[in-house]
Design a protein around this nucleic acid. Structure first.
Lengths: 356, 356
DNA sequence: AGCCTACAATAAATCGTTTCACCAGACGTT
DNA sequence: AACGTCTGGTGAAACGATTTATTGTAGGCT
């Protein structure tokens, strides 16, 4: 018993009693094919359960209906919903997606990028692992590439990101207005552009608030130790502002282990507003990023490039909202750890933050 | 200016001064090609930045190095890490993945399944939306299919799932042992097999504990209303046990809005142990599913089928662990809402749960 | 030398499509 | 009737790879 092959266009043609060219014309909605022939073809297609071989189709027509997506980590909820939105949009335009995760590893990213080329995608959407992305993009890659969320060191790419600096600055201003004197800013790596931009946003926004930065890496036990030692030290900072999701989880857990509670012992704010941040009591003040918008814009831009729109690389920055919740409150009535009541949402106007 | 095409094997052959067949032999590590020719080919490959066209390759060799993955919802962290693990494993075996999300919609799932056929994947791993999956699988689909996490109504598929019944039963027993008198069991849809199995596991495990079930759907405002009304009613149940992640988020939020706190006013336990459940204070008692194991086994099984292992469909059940935390505690010292200290992990022995 | 074997390299067929050039016939015009 | 002009349909050539069959060459053996 030999393996059953999928029915080919030739079988359809035979069964319908027409030529393969006619079948192809019917399937691609070409004009100039008579209604009765079209019907016969459609019947044959249905009876055989025929579906086009998209690989062969692309090979001949040189038109790829595939886009590649590379993200640093699929298990990060933000990237997951980025991909999910992207996939939906792409399908609407008749594109399929091959999604790969670089698992926060530049080498793995380079490998995936090389590998993805062999699919001959029409375009790529990439959230790079780090700034040196440009060096890892295989030379002579001709399909358009749109970067999202993070900026590479070298310019020259289309880019959709959020206004990290303004959003982080707004949080810092909020902390200052709340009366905090100093703030420990924690992030994974400053070599990741958005973390760096957030840190710079903090520094640029405040003058009275004393700020200090701590890099703790990604999944790095030594970084976790450094953070714990810092939080156990005598000079506990007034507030903690964490610049990315992974670090937020770690920091919040570390605080709990030490026995620090926000806002009682220390103020706590985070970039990346995750589901759980409004479930804990009190809720955690955080920056909410417009992930769906980012995906939407990235796809729209890529599609334009695929369709052939030339022109200089575009950079677009989307505005974030900030969610003020109990974890940064210094007014006594919030300290009791009452039920998280949603808090307050602030949209940033013109990149500025209106004081509390 | 015409579009630059990717270099083809022919260009490599020309540049190396050999035939295309030789290039192919070198690239596929065929024996019987002299070292100096191999070297010349490799040089040419490097100079041109050539990568094989995987579509053309598959077309000729009839060997697909692609597997399809269909999940109900990519933004569910459990499925996200399932996919992430899968993707890593597949790459190790030289496979690529095309991942699609059905967005909890059976029709969309059917559409994706049809569409994915045109890629001629070597196999499929599917977490079905609901029990009627079998009817949506396109007829005459010849590649092997491995289902994960959820059982279809009709048997006949390879299946990797967790032992829902035993794990849910263990939670119920735990609640009973803690002295709870009755428990409201909440899940999205009992038509989803694992939710149903969990509910049946609860019913089968306990005799003294009074149980009652409530279906609230997925993203259904009316279901949310029903839950809220039930929790505001006079007869507040002693405990709440939520059977899936989406419902857990909703239930926990609803409790907070009403002003109910666990375990003070009501016991609270959940299937699906998510990051945030040990971050809130007190931590939430939950079933921890072996997602990575599930992905591993699913991939291993699919690979065996792809390689041609015949035989009857296999069903494998993996054992869960349960995390006992403060949210179901009736001993007074935990009520204070102290820092979540990790709680206690229980591995289920032989599917039985040893009492607290 | 003559013959057989083993090895290296190649030419050509093939996979499932799309596309291009062409063809037969119907139709309209003078 | 002779001549263009559509119209609906087909055969065959690509696309970029792998695989099979074939060729040429060198070496070993009698």
């Amino acid at each position: 018993m030999s393996k059953p092959r999928s029915p080919s266009i030739k079988m359809v043609a035979d069964r319908a009693g027409v030529s393969v060219a006619t079948v192809s014309n019917v399937l691609n909605g070409k004009p100039s094919v008579s209604p009765d022939f079209a019907l016969r073809v459609q019947d044959a297609v249905r009876e055989l359960g025929y579906v086009v071989d998209i690989g062969a189709s692309r090979l001949r027509s040189q038109k790829s209906q595939l886009a590649g997506v590379v993200v640093p980590d699929l298990t990060n909820p933000m990237f997951a919903s980025f991909v999910s939105t992207l996939e939906h949009l792409a399908r609407v335009d008749g594109f399929d997606l091959v999604v790969v995760s670089a698992r926060n590893n530049p080498e793995e990213e380079a490998d995936r990028l090389r590998n993805i080329r062999s699919w001959r995608p029409a375009g790529l959407i990439v959230i790079p692992c780090d700034g040196s992305f440009a060096e890892r993009l295989p030379g002579g890659f001709s399909a358009p590439v749109v970067l999202a969320d993070r900026i590479p060191d070298k310019p020259g790419f289309d880019l959709i990101a959020v206004d990290n600096s303004a959003a982080a600055g707004a949080i810092a201003t909020h902390l200052e207005n709340q009366g905090y004197k100093d703030c420990l800013v924690v992030g994974s790596w400053l070599s990741i552009s958005n973390v760096r931009e957030r840190w710079e946003g903090v520094r640029g926004a405040v003058k009275r608030l004393g700020v200090e930065v701590l890099e703790i890496g990604i999944d790095d036990p030594e970084g976790a130790d450094r953070l714990e030692r810092r939080l156990r030290g005598r000079q506990l900072p007034g507030a903690l502002f964490v610049l990315d999701h992974g670090s937020s989880l770690l920091a919040y857990r570390t605080m709990a282990e030490i026995g620090l509670s926000a806002p009682r012992d220390i103020g706590f704010a985070s970039f990346d507003d995750m589901e759980w941040m409004r479930l804990v009591a009190p809720g955690i003040t955080a920056v909410r990023q417009p992930v769906e918008d980012m995906a939407e814009q990235a796809w729209a831009l890529l599609l334009r490039r695929i369709r052939g729109s030339a022109g200089d690389p575009v950079t677009r920055r989307l505005r974030c909202a900030i969610e003020i919740r109990g974890s940064t409150s210094r007014s006594p009535h919030q300290e009791a750890g009452e039920a998280p009541k949603g808090g307050m949402t602030c949209t940033l106007q013109e990149g500025r933050y209106s004081p509390d």
